[in-house]
Design a binder for these strands. Structure first.
Lengths: 231, 231
DNA sequence: TGGTGGCGTTAACGGCGATACGTCCTACAG
DNA sequence: CTGTAGGACGTATCGCCGTTAACGCCACCA
């Protein structure tokens, strides 16, 4: 096994077992059977090590999920993504804390990937006409609520008697605010449908940028559509 | 000035200025002009010091808010509380991070007080018939969403172009899920109003426990009402 | 065979949280 | 007023941590 991955495994193991979500570089080096400088040669910094460890654990977690991901109901995928997010946090609390809470100046990449996955699901929702705001704004709404639920379930477990219930309630509150109801509205009301149409059109344009408009024109149009969707 | 409060002031000052949300006991002692053992005599631990600092800052913050607090519209107070929460987090990011994020084994008391304040507002909402779930569940929904928005606005400011917009959107999503609309429903529908009635009755009973029921009976009744409200 | 550059170790530095111990100031009995 | 006891304070120190300088080893290439 590569020395780097050996250090990574040792650090991940120690971190998962640590009750205080903290690992010392010395302990990692001893567990990996290497001297201190190799660690700094490989990761440059303790923060670099921790970022790599978080990415490592998150990637490992995603590997099991990437298989049968996209269903034909993107809103269902949105709900599943929320539940997976919370489940991952509850199963790997130390990793999750490192991912969102502390002062890691460089966001560990896993967070960016999670954001990207969420955005992809929301784009599909918009393409299906199920989004009432722009995917960007929807992501900016879903992510804090999801992370907040996960973080408080981790850090204040005593307060939340029924974790699944609270998570589902907040999830539905956000999903309701962000998506249109399952059954399409019978009579498309002349008013209030602008946002849905704008969000859908934006998603279609983003998916298939082949249009008679130039790149800058398309960009501006997309910005206007987002503004319409979010109005 | 008392030595303890001098240390508290010094620590709060250093913490507020610290870019990395971390303070060394040595720096605090030097700034306060005391030796190290005094600090440990007063607070026992670095964690004890930080908890005291957070409580100190939060209490100072609440002092300015406690004056003209209760309006005649409890739902408006709920919204104001949300906004104040976010504003406090954005103005005192280091205090807020300490309050929610790290491994402070003893929740700093300020968090408990914030929870209590939220619960009081929600009780008033229920008493006014504006809550569709029990105050406890509502608090368990509002708190994570509110904290999640505040935390991600602090830790990932680059992602959130318009902080106020996102905060307001998530707030409205939660408020909508938790409260009944402003105008009372014209015709009280025979179905679906059970939860509102149960929540209101529970709030009234909690406010004025003088009832022909015994204490244990009242407790059980309140539990049932909560179950009805949350069904 | 003699560089040469990655990869590893030993040893050390400075800073941190925490504490043992001597010293000094204060308060009170005579 | 004076002597003494007790508690508060500062000095020096310990052990741990993150980090790095200096050096040794070994495979590869001209």
């Amino acid at each position: 096994m590569d020395t780097r991955t050996r250090i990574l495994h040792a650090a991940a193991d120690l971190l998962a077992r640590s009750p205080e979500a903290d690992v010392s570089t010395r302990a990692v080096c001893e567990a990996a059977g290497v001297g201190a400088p190799v660690l700094y040669r490989q990761f440059g910094d303790k923060e670099g090590l921790l970022s790599a460890v978080v990415d490592f654990g998150f990637e490992q977690y995603l590997a099991g999920k990437r298989a049968a991901k996209p269903s034909n109901d993107p809103v269902r995928d949105l709900r599943d993504g929320w539940n997976n997010h919370v489940a991952f946090a509850l199963e790997n609390p130390n990793f999750y804390r490192l991912m969102y809470s502390p002062g890691l100046s460089a966001p560990p990449g896993a967070a960016a990937e999670a954001h990207g996955l969420l955005l992809a699901v929301l784009e599909r929702c918009a393409a299906a006409g199920r989004l009432r705001v722009s995917p960007e704004l929807a992501a900016q709404m879903v992510m804090p609520a999801n992370a907040g639920v996960a973080l408080l379930l981790i850090t204040r477990p005593a307060i939340y008697s029924d974790a699944a219930e609270v998570s589902a309630r907040v999830r539905e509150a956000i999903v309701t605010a962000v998506t249109t109801p399952d059954e399409p509205p019978r009579t498309p009301r002349p008013d209030g449908e602008v946002s849905v149409l704008a969000a859908s059109l934006g998603a279609v344009l983003r998916a298939a940028p082949a249009s008679p408009l130039s790149g800058t024109e398309t960009a501006l149009l997309l910005e206007w559509l987002a503004r319409l969707a979010d109005a």
